[in-house]
Design a protein around this nucleic acid. Structure first.
Lengths: 145, 145
DNA sequence: ACAATAAAAGACAATTTTGTCCTATTTAAT
DNA sequence: ATTAAATAGGACAAAATTGTCTTTTATTGT
């Protein structure tokens, strides 16, 4: 709706990886896809984007899988995941798709959107994977259904 | 970015139609597409959706075209256009794509998104075509570039 | 009645997104 | 060294979105 499917899967996957990493567990794509209810192969592709962007760490071979260092969890923000997969158009681009839309030459929605996009940008840049993972850990939030 | 291309064109087209209707002018698809810088045939399709939803009025034949009654302009809200083309998922659905995401079983972003989506919904349901068209009329906003 | 004009409708094409499958590469364990 | 387990990468397929083109329908003006 707001993000692409790939981005939705990417965020859910990252949160699940973080959750498991908090408990010192490394997870496979198969397990991730199962736990976040997403297509395995497609999720694998999406995870590749995240590893290339150093958002999650992948280890090949037996007992390999995905993980996120505990000390990185706090510095990895949602905005980094979204940007890696969808780009920053959601919170940077014009709501009506104009190339040149700014305070000087605003589209009719420019001012109306300003606050919303600003809040969205702030939320995404301030929310860390750690925060999301701990919410899950405590059993307050869910990744499927 | 936020809306589909069809929806972007739809909004821009509706605003342009409203602007011209304010001056008592009826406009053709060709003129609309030219003025909002969009593909003609595709814009025509999108306009069909708006006419079916009684958001704009279309008149066939010579000196026909699209228009919006002045008295309707104020009651036509952005949310109606968006809903007619993209559905209401942007401001009603879950940010992470979960089917069942609510206060009881929230996704990790549910609370973080609550305000943003609520503001977006309010903005869309409160903003009328009249308001947008008059901004254009005064020369404060733009529909292309 | 006829010709011209404009939207409606439908078939088709291109592109992007979403998704699958097979092979290659890396690594751990025996 | 060999085998097995895991991600990486590439080719392909399906579906959705975006876009074009042609024909039909309605309406106006002559």
């Amino acid at each position: 709706m707001m993000f692409s499917k790939a981005c939705e899967y990417g965020i859910r996957a990252a949160v699940y990886i973080a959750l498991q990493s908090l408990e010192g567990k490394r997870v496979s794509v198969a397990e991730i896809a199962d736990e976040i209810d997403s297509p395995v192969a497609f999720t694998a592709k999406t995870l590749q984007q995240l590893t290339r962007n150093n958002i999650v760490k992948s280890i090949k071979g037996p007992s390999g899988g995905f993980e996120i260092e505990k000390e990185d969890m706090d510095s990895v923000k949602l905005s980094m995941i979204v940007k890696a997969i969808d780009g920053d158009g959601i919170y940077m681009g014009c709501g009506l798709g104009l190339k040149e839309c700014n305070a000087n030459q605003p589209c009719p929605l420019h001012d109306k959107f300003a606050d919303i996009r600003s809040n969205l940008r702030k939320m995404l840049t301030n929310t860390s994977l750690y925060e999301l993972a701990t919410g899950l850990e405590v059993g307050l939030t869910y990744l499927k259904r």
